[in-house]
Each structure stands twice: as C-alpha cells, then as structure tokens.
C-alpha cells in the first residue's frame, strides 16, 4: 500500500525519499517555486514553496514527505506571504522589466503576475553591481540576479564544471565566477551548457538573442507559471514560442 500525504484536502501518494515538492509535482499539483528545478539538488533559498505542514511553515522543496502530513498550499495567508517574498526580490535588485530581454519569459515576473503583485511595496535598494560582458556569447547582469544558485548547481551537477559560486555575506552576497580573473571569459563555460540557459531571470543571458519573440507569443503570454513548471516535470514537450 502506498503512503500518502494530504495537500489541501487531496490525497497525494509519495515514495520514501521524496520531498513534499516531489510528490506534489508528480501529482500535477502546483506549489509556487523559483529556486527549485527537478534534477538538481534542492536549495531552499527562495522560500516561495513555503507551505503549512500540520500548522508549521516549511519549505516544501526540502521537507521530506511523511505519512499522514496535513499540508495547506493554497491559502490566502500563504499567497500573501509569497507575494511579499516576491516584492522583496523585486526591490532588492533593479528589475526594470520594460528594458529587460527576459520580460515575458521570466519566472520571477510570471510568479509576480501569478500573485497579483502590483508594486514593490518596500523602498528600492537600487544596487550598483557589476555587469560581466567579457564572454563572447554570454553576459551576466548581476542587478537582476536573485541568488537562486540554479546556475551554480547546473554547472557543478550537470555540466561537470564549477563555473559559478555565491560569495559575500548578507545583502552583499553576489554571483561570482570561479576563474582566476573572476571574468566569465576566463572560465570554461560554453553556450551549450545547462548553466548558460537555466537562469530563471535576466541575469545570465545569451548575447545577441534579445527581443526575438513577438509580444503575445512569449512563454508566459501563452502559459501560466503553473502550466510551465508542471509540464517540465511530467516531461511533456513545451511548445513555448511556436504556433
């Protein structure tokens, strides 16, 4: 007999070793998330996948599922908490969507739409971080980086390289490149690497490929964030930009 947890009153089966997020995604239940990507080790930095488990707030991407858990995922209070987290991410960086090449294809932005975010609420940080345009085909705009470490994990766990890391403490934490000069050009990253493509926001971009998709045909013009994230898990082919 398979074990189950209950998410918003629905019985969800799981196997030992699965997290709440794993079980939810396998059952086509969407829990908002930003730093989590199936296939990479969980991270627990974005906190958007916070759910209530038996009355206690936990990150569903790192919390193991266990028999009989009563989990709340879709409550007004959780939506408000998640929206506040997204607002904190927006004001911490320079998320000027009107001039960003990733607009319409950006997971952070799509999550903000999903949570009906109208403003940043908090005072802007307006950080002044460095752009690294040294690489022939890639560019890093650190003002948009949300420190999800997807690029760090993709490089280490999938590409078999060690191109990125996060350095510094507190609000000064930022994405660094593990090359002697600290420049991306002096690392062994290649355009085909997963780390080059995995950035969910406009922080790591492929050069000369901005604004190619007409407005109305971009990923999140056509799909909700819940659809795209669930499709990736059940390995349906996503048809983002065509037809």
């Amino acid at each position: 007999m398979s074990k189950t947890i209950k998410i918003d009153g629905v019985d969800v089966p799981f196997e030992d070793g699965q997290t709440i997020m794993d079980a939810a995604l396998a059952a086509d239940i969407y829990i908002p998330h930003l730093c989590h990507k199936p296939g990479l080790s969980p991270h627990g930095s974005c906190k958007l996948c916070t759910v209530d488990v038996d009355g206690r707030a936990v990150s569903s991407c790192t919390m193991p599922a266990s028999e009989g858990q009563q989990i709340a995922n879709n409550t007004p209070a959780l939506k408000e908490v998640r929206k506040t987290i997204i607002q904190m991410l927006f004001i911490e960086g320079n998320h000027l969507c009107p001039s960003c090449e990733k607009t319409g294809d950006c997971t952070l932005q799509a999550l903000a739409y999903h949570h009906d975010m109208l403003d940043g609420h908090f005072p802007q940080f307006y950080p002044r971080r460095n752009v690294d345009a040294s690489h022939p085909t890639l560019i890093i705009d650190r003002d948009r980086c949300i420190l999800c470490e997807l690029c760090v994990r993709a490089s280490r766990e999938v590409d078999g390289k060690n191109v990125f890391a996060i350095a510094g403490r507190g609000i000064k934490r930022q994405l660094i490149v593990n090359s002697p000069s600290g420049k991306l050009a002096d690392s062994d990253i290649e355009t085909e690497d997963l780390a080059s493509h995995i950035c969910p926001v406009g922080a790591i971009l492929i050069k000369d490929h901005g604004y190619e998709v007409p407005i109305g045909r971009r990923t999140f013009d056509l799909h909700s964030i819940a659809e795209t994230d669930l499709e990736q898990v059940i390995l349906k082919k996503t048809v983002h930009h065509d037809a």
């Binding site: 004001i91 000027l96 001039s99 940043g120 002044r128």
Partner: peptide, 12 residues
C-alpha cells in the same frame, strides 16, 4: 511611478 522605471537606470 511604481519603481523608478527606466529613468532609474541613472542610479547606477
């Protein structure tokens, strides 16, 4: 009006 917008790029 909401977050400074493109003109706020001068804050760099």
């Amino acid at each position: 009006a909401i977050n400074g917008g493109v003109p706020a790029m001068r804050n760099h």
